[in-house]
Amino acid sequence: MDYEFIIKFLPLYKEAAILTLKIGIIGIIFAIIIGLALTIITFYQVPVLRNITKFYIELSRNTPLIIQLFFIYYGLPKVGISIKAEMCAILGLAFLGGSYMAETFRSGIEAIDVIQKESAYSLGFSKLQTIIYIIMPQAIRVSLHGIIANIIFLLKETSVFSAISIMDLMFTAKDLIGIYYNTIEALLMLVLFYLIILLPVSIIGILIERKIKYV
């Protein structure tokens, strides 16, 4: 084990981890927003938009992130839409995550009795008020576990970003292996940094699940 190597390149990994986290968090926030919007569309069976939503969910769930990214990053500029690599990554993550979030919210909403909706209407709530004040708070509670699982899944998917030459953890590790041939050290740091990113989220997920179970 070459400790000097580890100490020397630790800052490089830290930078890469911060970049990964930054893109990941922004992408996840967009994914949640898309998911919420799609859920509202399906909940109220908005014509036309409903069909587009269904198609989008199937399309995004049944294709790998890497080809989505390649299409956005290499394909779209050919038809005049040029986007920076980091924006592509956020866009790709949001495109992938939106459908997963929507499916999780949907299953949460399905778990809530129709009577809640009917009662809200009879109290004079509007459609939008019903979903924001009555349905969503309950649905999010039910689907919280699924949301955390999605967040972990999306954070894991960020490892693909190196394919569109973003200097993330994978890119850094591969670079160092290529230049210095310190494979073991480079891989060890890679694993450690992913654990630092993913373990807290995973533990929060377990804690939340436990809390909900006991309430």
Partner: peptide, 19 residues
């Protein structure tokens, strides 16, 4: 389950050669 599959691929592909 917590490691990205790409990291696992790197560990096996690059790591096994070296180790």
């Amino acid at each position: 389950r917590i490691m990205p599959q790409l990291v696992l691929l790197f560990i096996v592909y690059f790591g096994s050669t070296r180790a």
